[in-house]
Simulated scan of single mutants.
Amino acid sequence: MTDSQKQSAIVRDWKPSAEFRYFIYDPNGDGFTYYRSAADRDADSTNIIAQYCDDGWDEDVENIVAGEISHTCEKTNVRARPPEDEIDGEGYDQDGDYWAEEWDYKCGYELLPLAAQGGDV
């Protein structure tokens, strides 16, 4: 298999998940790109780094980083918007919580571990 064929066989995603937990961050390219394995990520890194060399090296090449995601920021404690007849004219529900007109739900956010896959934690 040629290098070009190997590159086209690499599957990338734009959102981290348990399946796509390995990443490269390319500040002048696609930003974060996620991979199924460290080997795929490392294979793709050669092409990403090479894009920073023209007549000389662009200093931004030093801002490329790679790693493995362990946690992502996820919605928690999601509460659906109450029916309109339970929200008063000022936007408050029966519990005294404010609901702006454009809000369909309320929630918090927390860093949570990626779902385990194949025994990974």
Rank of each mutant, 00 (worst) to 15 (best):
Y92D: 11
I49Q: 09
E110N: 14
W103S: 12
W57H: 05
Y109W: 15
R79Y: 04
R79F: 02
G96E: 11
R81I: 02
Y92K: 11
E84I: 12
D54T: 05
A66D: 10
I64V: 05
N77S: 14
S70L: 12
L111D: 15
R79T: 07
E110M: 14
V61T: 02
E74K: 13
Y98C: 10
Y98R: 10
D55I: 02
D54P: 00
A50F: 02
Y98L: 13
D42F: 07
W103C: 08
K75Y: 06
N77M: 11
L112Y: 04
Y98D: 10
K75L: 09
P83C: 03
E84V: 10
A100F: 10
Y52K: 02
S70G: 10
A66P: 01
I48A: 03
E74L: 11
G108L: 15
G108C: 15
R81F: 07
N63L: 07
Q51W: 05
T72A: 12
L112G: 02
Q51L: 05
V61I: 10
D104F: 10
G108R: 14
V65S: 10
Q94N: 13
H71M: 10
P83V: 04
D104Q: 13
P83H: 09
I48Q: 06
S70P: 00
G56A: 15
R79K: 13
A43K: 00
D54H: 08
G91P: 03
N63K: 09
G89S: 05
T72I: 12
D58S: 06
N63V: 00
L112A: 09
V65P: 00
I48G: 01
Q94T: 14
E90N: 15
E74D: 14
A80D: 12
I87Y: 07
D42S: 14
D60L: 03
Y105Q: 14
P82D: 01
T76W: 00
D60F: 05
E59K: 14
V78N: 06
D97V: 09
G108H: 15
D60N: 07
Y52H: 04
D44W: 00
I69G: 01
V61H: 04
Y109C: 11
D85G: 03
D54A: 09
D54V: 03
D44P: 00
A43T: 06
